[in-house]
Design a protein around this nucleic acid. Structure first.
Lengths: 336, 336
DNA sequence: TTGTAAGCGTTATCAC
DNA sequence: GTGATAACGCTTACAA
């Protein structure tokens, strides 16, 4: 494989001159530039990014560590990250942690080895056991979608408190008095924030005392389990709030299995919309997060930090959700 | 940041000895190893993968170039790739081409620069204009999901011909005589193969002459457009075959907009299933591809090629689809 | 405008 | 078992 030394020999110049042509840096006379460019063509030269990165200490690689790219919310976010990275000349390493702190740790270590210029992280836990990895290192980190303690980083996330509050207000306004909330694990900020927002709405409506809260995981099976538990409560709930898309779908399946219709027999609202392209008949009333934009903004903050020399203070960008009212929330409840 | 030289100084050994400890290669006395390991801990050492890769010519990085990670089929495939890569100690670079050959070219060039050990590619076109990039280079490539001309590479894909054939046989068996096929662009192998398979079934049933074939793109909007065109045909079709998931959803939306019910007014079958976790009420009759497995097998072939010194002949792994019959295909048709 | 020299951090090669 | 030396391919710093 040709190197800049081969090019230099061929073009009759010094390697550094070739480097200048390739990087469009410094002064190079036009005819010299031409000669070099011809050599590049003829030798089918491909720069070695490893050597470049080793010397210049920049790899033009960002990395995205998320819980599961299979979740459409994160897929969309990842696409936003990739588009923004690519638009700025960066490539993207992607890692799935499955919400496991040990996998997260393994990946973060590898990323530090690879000298990625920056890391976009959806942390698996609010109290990260991996915060130590970033101490005394200068790889900047942007936290996406969640809050985390102990890591000094910019944050971009949707407003979980606000979204959940809106959904709560909606249900209360429809007259629901016995509501079940199915959420993720405690210790994950998005899970906790959605509980905070929802509780606030319940409290304001004076129905907090009858609120049922179930903690599980952000996966379908957990949604089914929590739904089955909730239905055993007495009196049973007239509405369900699912704290993410997968829990919602699990809940719908569990209800269907029991022959319960939504919204006729029980109302339902949820966090996270499903992409329009994936759903034939949009049905769920949701607080939709701007997933793509979360990704784009995350890259923006990361690159700004990379560009600026002086350490600026950390920023937290909280993007608003969109309340989309569809059929699943139903109309006003009539209690017998 | 600590380097191997710092460790060597601290442990009172030569750098190469530290290298041996880190890589678990060669002989190192137990007490020396201990000393080195202690130095690693104390200095919080993180190996520099750039230097390593530059010298050793392996980066332990694979790359996945696909059309759009937002499509659940590719999301699942990507997850398979990432899991398999990670299980073997490789990280994954991900790029979206949006089926555009120029974007594909840009990414492939960058990946060659980054010296990724191998590339998994979902080619944007059957006759790749980017095949030249791989000549005289030894970065191995595995082609996923599609066939491509001109690139010497292993291939892993679902059996488009067989899947489409099965769906065709199903429709014919139900008595449909006027069928519309909505597919992707000609020039993309999956699109063409599905037409081949479907035509074969139509031919065997003696209804090929009334088959309507529409070429569009593998996106929802295109599915809607093609459906609207198909409905204008006279006599109008009694069944639709959508050649991928997005086209299917677009078609369903177009039908709904026209007040047509599936399968009562018109039957429908499609390629690609939607992940179970994303669909509340599975409804479409589909030929489901083993997306995750395509990814896993792709990595397997790639790593086998990386490991083996001698150039083995290229392999083509064609994985069977699963025919899943649900409600959308309906029952036997009754013609008036 | 161009070039020289050195070094980025590691490992291959060969020597002891 | 361990080490000296060079080399991987490029760019920084400085000189001319």
């Amino acid at each position: 494989m040709a190197t800049i030394i081969d090019l230099a020999t061929k073009a009759g110049v010094a390697p550094i001159t070739v480097s200048r042509v390739i990087n469009n840096s410094g002064y190079v006379r036009e005819d010299v530039r031409k000669r070099v460019q011809q050599a590049i063509e003829e030798l089918d030269y491909v720069p070695n990014a490893l050597a470049r990165g080793l010397r210049s200490k920049r790899t033009f690689t960002l990395s995205l560590v998320l819980t599961d790219i299979t979740n459409p919310f994160f897929t969309t976010m990842a696409r936003g990250v990739e588009d923004a990275a690519s638009a700025n000349g960066y490539m993207l390493l992607v890692c799935n942690t499955d919400e496991r702190e040990d996998k997260e740790r393994m990946y973060l270590r590898l990323l530090l080895q690879k000298r990625a210029d920056g890391i976009l992280l959806v942390p698996s836990r609010k109290r990260s056991g991996n915060a130590d990895l970033f101490r005394n290192r200068h790889t900047p980190v942007v936290i996406l979608d969640r809050r985390v303690e102990g890591i000094s980083a910019d944050v971009v996330r949707g407003d979980s408190v606000q979204g959940a509050y809106q959904l709560g207000v909606l249900l209360a306004g429809l007259g629901h008095k016995r509501v079940a909330m199915l959420t993720g694990p405690s210790g994950v900020s998005s899970s906790e924030d959605r509980e905070i927002g929802f509780r606030k709405a319940m409290k304001e409506a004076g129905i907090e005392s009858t609120l049922l809260v179930y903690n599980g995981n952000f996966v379908q099976e957990s949604g089914m389990e929590m739904t089955n538990k909730a239905l055993q409560a007495s009196p049973s709930p007239t509405a369900i709030f699912a704290a993410n898309n997968f829990i919602a779908i699990g809940a719908l399946k569990a209800l269907q299995a029991k022959g319960l219709r939504v919204p006729e027999d029980i109302a339902m609202v949820a966090f996270d919309d499903l992409p329009e392209s994936m759903v034939t008949f949009p049905f769920l009333t949701v607080a939709a997060q701007p997933a793509y934009d979360i990704g784009v903004q995350g890259v923006r903050l990361l690159l700004e930090r990379l560009e600026s020399e002086e350490p600026t203070s950390f920023r937290e960008v909280i993007l608003p959700n969109e309340l989309i009212v569809r059929k699943s929330s139903g109309g006003a409840v009539k209690y017998q």
